[in-house]
Amino acid sequence: MEAVILLQWTFDTFLGLGLLWLAWRALACPDLFRAIVLFVAFGLLLAMAWVSLDAPDVALAEAAIGAGLTGALLLAALARLRSSETNVEVAGQPEKKGLKVRNPQWLPVVVLLPVAAGLGYVVLSLPPDAVGLSAQVAANLETGGVSNPVTAVLLNFRGYDTLLEMVVLLLALLGVWSLGGAALRREDAPGLVLDTLSRLLAPVLILVAGYLLWVGAHAPGGAFQAGSVLGAAGVLLLLAGWRLHAGLAALPLRLALVAGSGIFLAMAVFTLLMEGQLLKYPPAQAGILILVLETAATVSIGVTLAALFLGGRPPNKQDHR
């Protein structure tokens, strides 16, 4: 038993040091491309930290979003930045201007050391044992409709968090779209490997998303994880040159984008009228209601994430006039 505990401690210590080192390298490395790749590796290591902290639901979300989609977004932005920078006459500047430092470096260190020390002191001064709200969650799990406590919190006990979050996703996409039309990418044909692989992987990813959605009721998984896997499938297809059919780009796309927040809002109003309380489901129907909400949220999250990756608003039929 001693050896197991020692092994666990060694693992945790090295994981923590690795996280700090990777974050430092990602933030200090002169080349932006390498910095982003290091950041993706940091996300994967962080997913392992979530597993070590008994948070498999967070680990799934981190692996799909934190490491996968954020990395894809950053790399796509870097590629567009490089092409726009070479177009506008700044090509003469040194390549390593990503490392340009503005202030004398000791000043922020002097200011931040007390901040870090204070935060560390506050964290260490917390009581070593605290159950938080887990007793309340466990006591109400019977009426929650699902047996996975994280899904119960996300969709039932604190459903309004998720409702507002769907709106935040929609707002972010509206912001991106209102900043301009679709940024056209290079339209060269994808390589044979990418083309074949995306055809093989996209259906598998959709299947995985469906599985995660279903299994989220009683095991790690749920709408966010399923939605981000769906978004990853969309990103893969977009990379391989797939574009939404122009007939689907107008109303059907927008319906898919607002499905999550729309159905959530309708459910909120319905429960407010029927039960007198926002998002308080009748215990007998809670399971099926949560599944309906999660399905709509999964579709919306997946489509929104893929649309965020594409950048601009896909052209409508009307735009072709």
Partner: peptide
């Protein structure tokens, strides 16, 4: 489970 749920929400908000 409550902080876990908040962090999952936070990850999605961070990416958007």
């Amino acid at each position: 489970a409550v902080p876990h749920a908040m962090v999952i929400t936070g990850i999605v908000v961070a990416v958007s």
